[in-house]
């Protein structure tokens, strides 16, 4: 039985890997074709959406693969020192299609010298999860910031969307108990949390905290995700 489950997993992983590579090729070709034709303004906006969607699909497959691997016993984070600003500005630059397609606006607030120890391929995935969650919730502004103290590097994603539903804030998503309404958001965060937990130093472990930003009149003015990564 156990052996069969393992095979099932491997089959899926291999297949997803293959799909990811093929889609990458396809999207590359599509890009070339699209850049060779003259388009109206509306059509150009459509092209942006296609590019954004294709990037989403690619990112999603990368995320699924990494999430799958995170369930294995031999999952490791390859941590090295990274500067937060270099990492966050690359995250934003990678989302240029998303920005164009969703009229999104990114701001970056980070000191040049803030750094931490993390596996940046894993953190890219976690940041993507957060950004896509924000877009799905309807946010138009996303602020990325980074700070540090003696023990942790904090990467913070703020948006101006409707905030997290109460049950997601109260429920312990790190245990995988996810209500039906917020299932995909919850599942995404569950795996993001698993991924960040692979970052450990002494008795400290990486974690994700969710909160809502309270604005005027004590109304929710956005969602806030804080990633804590041990130094």
């Amino acid at each position: 039985m156990g052996n069969n489950d393992e095979l099932k997993g491997e089959l899926l992983a291999a297949s997803i890997h293959e799909i990811k590579n093929r889609l990458g090729l396809m999207f590359g070709e599509l890009d070339d074709v699209l850049s060779a034709v003259n388009l109206s303004k509306d059509q150009q906006q459509q092209v942006q959406r296609i590019k954004s969607e294709s990037q989403f699909v690619s990112n999603e497959l990368v995320r699924v693969l990494a999430s799958y691997k995170s369930l294995g016993d031999d999952f490791y984070a390859n941590v090295d020192q990274h500067f937060a600003i270099e990492f966050l500005e690359e995250v934003i630059a990678r989302h240029s299609y998303t920005v164009a397609a969703h009229n999104l606006h990114f701001t970056l607030d980070c000191n040049e010298d803030v750094s931490g120890f993390f596996d940046n391929s894993i953190l890219f995935i976690i940041l993507d999860t957060c950004i896509y969650n924000s877009i799905k919730a309807g946010a138009l502004n996303i602020k990325l910031s980074a700070t540090e103290d003696e023990q942790f590097l904090y990467l913070v994603i703020d948006d101006n969307g409707p905030g997290f539903p109460e049950e997601l804030l109260e429920g312990d998503f790190s245990q995988g108990s996810i209500s039906v309404e917020s299932q995909s958001t919850g599942l995404g965060l569950f795996f993001a949390n698993k991924l960040i937990q692979s970052h450990k130093e002494a008795d400290l472990t990486g974690s994700i905290q969710l909160s809502n930003i309270m604005g005027e009149g004590n109304k929710i003015s956005g969602a806030k995700v804080t990633l804590s990564i041990p130094l």
């Binding site: 999207f27 590359g28 890009d31 270099e86 500005e89 690359e90 934003i92 630059a93 990678r94 240029s96 299609y97």
Partner: peptide, 18 residues
């Protein structure tokens, strides 16, 4: 990859500054 203008600009500045 995929290298976009946005990404090229950002990375290039960063790498040269570093």
């Amino acid at each position: 990859k995929p290298v976009t203008l946005e990404l090229l600009k950002t990375r290039l500045v960063r790498i040269i500054r570093t």
